[in-house]
Amino acid sequence: MSLSNLLNDWTRYRQGIEEGGFHDYEHIFGMAIDLNKCIGCNACSIACYAENNLAVVGEEKFAKDQGMHWLRIERYWDEPDLGADDQEFQEHGASFLPMMCQQCNAATCEPVCPVAATYHTPDGLNAQVYNRCIGSRYCSNNCPYRLRYFNFYSYYETSWPAPLDQQLNPDLSVRDKGVMEKCTFCIQRIRVAKDTAQREERELVDGEFTTACAQTCPTSAIQFGDLQDPNSKVSQLWKQYQVKLGTTEQSKQNKELRGYRVFESLNTEPCVMYLDRVREV
């Protein structure tokens, strides 16, 4: 079933490309992150820890790059090749970049999974099925964004000493040793919203669900929603900034307009659009 799902979704994806889009996806959940507004405060990251049962690994393991932050804020200083080397100070502050699984439509992690534990859902999400994962870590090695996190240990034994375990969210599992995990765009929240909509026999409404990070972001830099819904805030943002799926290079009418996807030239088709950071010079 997993294998068929994987093949099926890849086929649907390709058919979609041929016909000019991802027309038959029920939803494509996507994000828009405004780096002009992101202040790098880390609220999103901790919200993610709280929502998604992320393990705290401790200093030794963190030092080995085994931190489990599904959403991390990367901080970059100005680059030497832009003349910053000559500057005595970081006069334009830092560059902050919230990075979570980009939910690529042409995800490089999916085809390398030997057991089809990671595949594309009809919602345009890159799913990770924990109980199917055998921990080959091929997916992680194949992810250009380095956004997959591997459980090298049974963190549930150490990460939530009682009563910390009472905080764990029952809507998703606590991952065990040997399993790969990553951002799911808060699938458990989407699931609740879809179930509610289905029960009430209506369509999903933009704004009735959002990810934990977007919800808490103090500057509202993160927007989340359905790219297939023309009225959703996020699809309107994509439209406003003329960023499209299905291309390795955005061709905008207004070349100066902000908006890009990280590493889109790799043809991974990420569903996260970033709006450029802005600085006065």
Partner: peptide, 21 residues
């Protein structure tokens, strides 16, 4: 966290001027 202090030429965070904005 992270090994790289700068973007090393990758366009991770793209910056535009306030003029462009």
């Amino acid at each position: 966290m992270g090994d790289s202090e700068s973007q090393v030429g990758r366009k991770l965070v793209s910056t535009v001027t306030a003029e462009v904005f």
